[in-house]
Each structure stands twice: as C-alpha cells, then as structure tokens.
C-alpha cells in the first residue's frame, strides 16, 4: 500500500521567490524506513511539513502539484485531522514535553482523541514499554536526560498509534550511545507494527543500517534515491553529503583501482569484503 504519494509537488513560501521544494515526485510504501538527507535549506523540513498539512494550512505559500498522505489530499485536510495518523518528533524534546509526569505526557495524545479510559491506559502502557521508559512513569520529564526525554516524546507519539512517524533530526542533542539506542528503538517499531518511518538526518552512520531507502535532496529536488549501499556508491559525496566513513573508504579505494565489489553500510560488510579480497589475492 502506498501511504505517501507526491506528484510534481512544488511549494514556495509567501515572500520568497524560489520554491523550497520543486517538482517532487515520491511514493512511500507502508512499513518503509526512509532516511531523508541533504544540505541545510535543501527542502527536507518543508517536505516534512507537508506530511501533516502544516503546509499549506499553517505556513502560507503557493502550492503546485499534489501530495496524498494516506489517501488524503493535504490541501483539503487540516493538521488536526492528519495528526491522528502522522506523528512528529523534533530535534529538541524539551519543546514537546509539558506534563508533570512521563505517564501524563504519554496519555495526553490518546486522551485528546477521546478514547475510552481503558484504551488510553492500554496504549500508554504499551508505548512506555516499547520505548523502555516504564520505570520512569512517575518522573517529571524535565528531570530526565536528553535521551530519556526523546524516548518520552516518541512514546507520546506512539500512544496515538500513528501510521507514519516523522523524526526531524531526533538525535542531534544526544550522546552517540543514546542516539544509537533511539534509532534502534524506532527501527524495532517496524516489527511491532506496520509503521512507516521518515527520518530526517545529517548523521548517516547511525541510521543507514536500518534504512530501506535513502533520499538525498538538494535545492528543493530529489537528487538521488535508493538503498543506502547504492546511493553511497554514487555521487552522494559530490553533492556534499557526509556519507558513512566506511562507505567513503570503499569509494576512495575504488578510485585508486581497488574495487572491492560493494559499498558497505555496516561494519560487518566492510570487514568481510576486505578480508575476502586479501585472502583471494593470496591464493
């Protein structure tokens, strides 16, 4: 099932001459894990804002083409309609948390949907469990570490049982170990439920191993897209995208005439490819 379909989507913010996104064509299947990356100002956040109709109903401007999110045309939908199905997690969890306890924060969304008490309770328990914060239920969000806060933000989105989760640089403020755990938690959600994940990220080393597809944007357009191993082998470097160092290593070797037959995304792939080549040469 296609959950997002953009066709010739162009959006220009009012007061701006240049479109922020231009002739964007994209289809996303249910359950896909997609990483969107590209230089600042490439249009990735603008695209994300279309997914819950913040564009065009909150950010004004001129839209051409169309985008359907779960079959709904965003130009005819409101953010409150879409927010039942599309959850957002931002860079700074502090901006998203406001209750006095973790449990209350996670319950806020489903309560707002007008769900029965029992259902709210079930969802809150489940969301806290899959994000690993059950033991923090009575803590105040502001007492928690950045990594824990980001888990609370994700749990409160999950409790709405969205079809799509959009994460806009969710790990920027976290130490690498917490960042790694957050990405892993998000990735595990796919086996828990058929959720579609759109992750906007500069740091490709953490997310690449989980991604089905990487989309590289530049100046409002999609420049490259495909499985990470394919995208990192092509012109991603030339556009100025910071591909993972192990992928870069293999590209550099290839340029010197040592084609090791792949562009690795994981450490295991890289180790095996080098090992194989050294052993082959020996025999």
């Amino acid at each position: 099932m296609i959950v997002i379909k953009a066709q010739d989507l162009t959006f220009t913010y009012s007061g701006s001459k240049k479109p922020a996104i231009e002739n964007l064509n994209l289809e996303v299947k249910e359950g896909e894990f997609i990483v969107i990356t590209g230089p600042s100002g490439c249009g990735k956040t603008t695209f994300a804002r279309c997914l819950n109709a913040l564009i065009p109903s909150f950010y004004r401007g001129e839209m051409k083409g169309f985008i359907l999110v779960l079959g709904m045309d965003i130009s005819k939908s409101t953010t409150s309609q879409l927010s039942k199905y599309v959850g957002f997690v931002f860079q700074n969890p502090e901006n998203q948390l406001f209750s006095l306890s973790v449990e209350r924060d996670v319950a806020f969304g489903p309560e707002n949907l007008g769900l029965p008490r029992e259902e709210v309770r079930r969802r809150v328990e489940w969301a806290m469990k899959v994000t690993g914060i059950t033991h923090l239920r009575h803590a105040a969000p502001y007492e928690l570490s950045g990594g824990q806060q980001q888990r609370v933000a994700i749990a409160s989105i999950l409790a709405m049982k969205p079809k799509i989760i959009v994460l806009d640089e969710p790990t920027s403020f976290l130490d690498p170990l917490s960042a790694h755990q957050i990405i892993e938690t998000v990735s595990n959600l796919r086996s828990e439920m058929e959720i579609t994940i759109i992750l906007i990220e500069h740091r490709l080393d953490l997310a690449s191993r989980y991604a089905d597809r990487v989309i590289i944007m530049d100046r409002g357009r999609i420049i490259l897209e495909g499985p990470p191993s394919k995208v990192y082998g092509e012109d991603a470097e030339a556009i100025g995208v910071g591909i993972p160092k192990i992928s870069l290593l293999f590209n550099l070797l290839k340029r010197e005439g040592y084609d090791l037959g792949c562009t690795p995304v994981t450490l295991e792939e890289a180790t095996q490819a080098i090992r194989r080549r050294i052993m082959d040469d020996r025999s």
Partner: peptide
Amino acid sequence: ASLVPPQIGLL
C-alpha cells in the same frame, strides 16, 4: 563515556 568509537577504528 557513552560515545561510539569511530567507524574506521572499529573496522
């Protein structure tokens, strides 16, 4: 220290 070692170092 909750850091992740550099990829190349791990390789």
